[in-house]
Every structure is written in structure tokens, then in C-alpha cells.
Amino acid sequence: MDSIVNTEKTKNIVKLTLHPRNLHQGQYDFVNLMAACPELKPHVITNPKGELSINFSDPQSVLLLNKALLAYFYDITFWQIPDGYLCPPIPGRVDYLHYIADLLSDSFHDEVPTGSQIKGLDIGCGANCIYPILGSRSYDWSFVGADIDSLAVKTASLLVKANQNISKKIIIRQQKNKQHILTGMVKNSDRFAFTLCNPPFHASMEDAAAGSQLKQKNLRKKAVNAVANAKSELNFAGKAHELSCAGGEIAFVKQMVTESTLIKDQVCWFTCLLSKGENVAPIKKLLKQCDAHDIKVVEMAQGHKISRFIAWSFLTEQQRIGFFV
């Protein structure tokens, strides 16, 4: 299957907080997910309401749920990541891509563009390679995934090679200079419809650990099997470069904005997630100082969580339309 924009595999109750094209509306269909990924079956439990679920505070259960979602909805037959690396929540990750598709549609007479001529650059693709995988399977886009971690690069490359339906659509590059973000990842011959990035959130690993402990505490409270004797030690996925950087999110995105000015004619839209709402204003101020022609802030919602990404372009509307001609 070349593109699954119109796939209707799920008939669950619509959850309006997700993007309308998101395939993960409503409750998870664990019967079909277990059929797609038998490894998930031992981790599926029945909650007090009599519904099938998993213990979302158990990393292995969450990883296998992701594996099942990728197999059932996106025909990804091989997906594994090394211990300790980020295991992303797929419904939220694919939402980012759907909203980017809407952003691009402005240059295509309000139609969502599909096909490999639409090329994205994922800054920090990680070992999971989730954005390139979801983008190529949802819209048939092509991608370059970039990361500074050698094991992440090797793992992402293996995932791409192991799945025939994406093997010719995704290229993985290693950022050799850890002081750079975009610089060095865009070749002179490259032209990207968009960039995307999920930047490090925390200013230090101590902050990351504290945030993880709070998250685990909340997850345990909600755990459907009421694990009273759950492990109390710190348990979170993500390497240091995935979770933190000097100055935190705001410093990372400011550097990304500055570097974007060096390749402003080679990218139609730069985008980056912003987890903290208070970071929007200073980033917009910097973008105006850098003479960005258009700046957009797109809000997304998954359940009770509100997230957003900021998008900027140095091209005029007419130049963006011509960018794809």
C-alpha cells in the first residue's frame, strides 16, 4: 500500500481532540492489535470497567503497544529500539505530521500533498525513527532523518532497511558536530518541503529525572491493574541528548532558528515542537529579528494535553507555491 491517507481501519468512537485524519481515534482495538503483534498479548489486561488495556507505567508494555500500532495501521513489520532510548507515543507523533500536511496544503490549492517529491528533514530522528516512518506511510513522503547518536543512527538505518515499504523513502544521516543542529545536515543540492523536530525539553538530566519521577507517579495512580508493589526506582526512556541540553528547550530552538537563516532558500517551512507555552513569545520575537516572512503557531491536543509547534518560512507565499513546481 503506497499511501494510507484514506485508510479506515478503525471504527471506534471519534475523539475530537486528535486531528481528523489521525487513525488513532477512540479506544485502542486490542483484539486486532494483538493479532497484528502477538507479543503484546501477555501484556494486555482487563481494567475495572471490563475493558482491555495495558499497564502504561510498564515500559515494555508501551513499547509493544507501539510495535502493534505500527504493524496494524502502518504495515511496519519490524520495529525494535535499544534499551534506554525514547519510545514515543504514536498518536501524538502522527498528529504533528497531519498538521504539517495541512500547513503544506496552503501551497497546493488546499489539497494535502502526497508522494515522494515532498521531502522532510527530521532533526533528532532517534533510534525509533518514528516521524519518517509515520510520514512515509501516511503520505508517501520521503525523509532525511538526522541524529548525533551513532547507535541511534545505526538502529534507525536498520529499521528502514528491514521494512521494504519505506526502505527507498528514508535516508539517515549522522550529525558529526554536536555543536550544530541544522548546519551540516542540509546539502547544497537538498530542498526540503519542511523540517520537524522534537527538541530536548529539559536543561539538565536532573530536571529530566525529576519530571520522569512525577510522570511515573501519575501513571501508577492511573494503572488499571493497581500495581501496589510497582518498582519505585527511576524508570524512564531517553538518552541524555534526547531529554536535555544546556539551556533547555528555549536555547535549543533559538539556535535552530539562527541556523535556519543559513539555509532559508532550501526549506519551505521550518517547524519545531514547543512544549512550553511561555517559549512561544521569545521565539517569535527572534524570528521577526531574523526576518522570517511568515510565522505560525499550531496548537494540537491529545486528551487533556495541549501541545504546539511553531512554523516559520523565509519565503513569500508565491515563492512557496513555486518551490514545488
Rank of each mutant, 00 (worst) to 15 (best):
A230M: 03
E233T: 09
A226D: 04
V186M: 13
K161S: 07
A228M: 08
K222T: 09
K221C: 15
P200S: 15
F252R: 05
H241L: 09
F194N: 10
L182N: 07
A251C: 13
V224G: 05
A226K: 12
R220D: 10
Q213R: 10
A193G: 15
Q174C: 06
Q175N: 10
V186H: 13
F194W: 15
M205W: 05
Q255M: 10
T155N: 13
A203V: 12
Q216K: 04
L243A: 00
K239H: 09
S167L: 01
A162S: 05
M205C: 02
N225Q: 11
K254N: 13
F201S: 03
N188G: 13
C197I: 12
F201P: 07
S189R: 08
N188P: 11
A223H: 00
E206K: 08
Q179W: 05
A237R: 08
K176M: 14
I172N: 00
E249K: 00
K176W: 10
L243Q: 02
N229R: 06
A237L: 15
N177S: 02
Q213H: 11
F201T: 06
I166M: 00
V253N: 12
A209C: 11
N163D: 02
V227Y: 12
K187E: 12
R173L: 10
A223Y: 07
I170H: 11
I172A: 01
Q179I: 00
I171F: 12
N235E: 03
A162C: 06
A251W: 07
A246I: 02
N235R: 12
G184Q: 03
V253Y: 11
K215N: 07
R173G: 06
A210E: 13
H180S: 08
S204C: 01
H202D: 01
V253H: 01
I250F: 04
E206T: 07
N235Q: 14
A246G: 06
I166K: 01
P200Y: 13
P199E: 10
S189N: 10
T195C: 14
R220V: 07
N229K: 15
N177T: 06
N225Y: 04
H180L: 14
L234F: 08
R220N: 14
S167I: 03
I171A: 05
G247K: 12
A162F: 04
M185Q: 14
R191P: 02
K231V: 13
L214D: 08
M185Y: 10
V186R: 04
I181F: 04
K169Q: 06
K222G: 03
A208V: 14
A162L: 12
K178G: 07
G238A: 05
S189T: 13
S244P: 02
E249T: 00
F194P: 11
P200F: 14
E242P: 01
R191T: 11
L243V: 03
N235A: 14
M185C: 06
E233K: 08
G184K: 03
M205S: 03
N163P: 01
C245K: 09
S189Y: 12
T155V: 13
N218I: 08
N218G: 07
Q174R: 15
P199Y: 11
A237S: 07
S204R: 06
